[in-house]
Amino acid sequence: MVIVKRKELSFAERLYLPEIFRALSLTFRNMFQREITRQYPEEPLPKTEVTRGQPRLVELEEGSLACVSCGLCEAACPAYAITIDGGETENFIEREPKLFEIDMLRCILCGFCEEACPKDAIFMSDELELAGFTRKGLVYGIDKLRRPRAALQKRIDYVYRINDRWRNSSSTH
């Protein structure tokens, strides 16, 4: 048991009024301080490589997706936001996504898909804004998700760097 000795308050302190006036003077002085608000759409926050925006699919130089629709991101997604249907192609990698949908309303930007992907095909981009008029319109298909690799390069480099210990000669490539 701990006995806490309360401080004996003086009359002025018990009156509470001096403290009120001190508080009032503080807020009054604060009125003339500089604002720290950032005017968001005009002054966006700086985006760093750590920024986890919406997930995007990597488009390779030859124009095809890096994704092979293995479904690991779909399985890893805690919000069940991803739906993939695969199909066959004539490429060397025989499988490609015919349907790749991320329900952006469900997506919680956790980055599990990025972590799960064995093909470095999905990365968290720095795109943050999301608005739409219909729920359907915010279910993004391949056409809205694909980004050239160069656009995601900053994040890709970052992920490679922090995952270096997993990535060595015997890795996927």
């Binding site: 009125m31 003339f32 604002e35 608000t37």
Partner: peptide, 10 residues
């Protein structure tokens, strides 16, 4: 407005 100024906002 006043609350904003008191909290360093706009």
């Amino acid at each position: 407005k006043v609350s904003a100024w008191m909290q360093f906002r706009i």
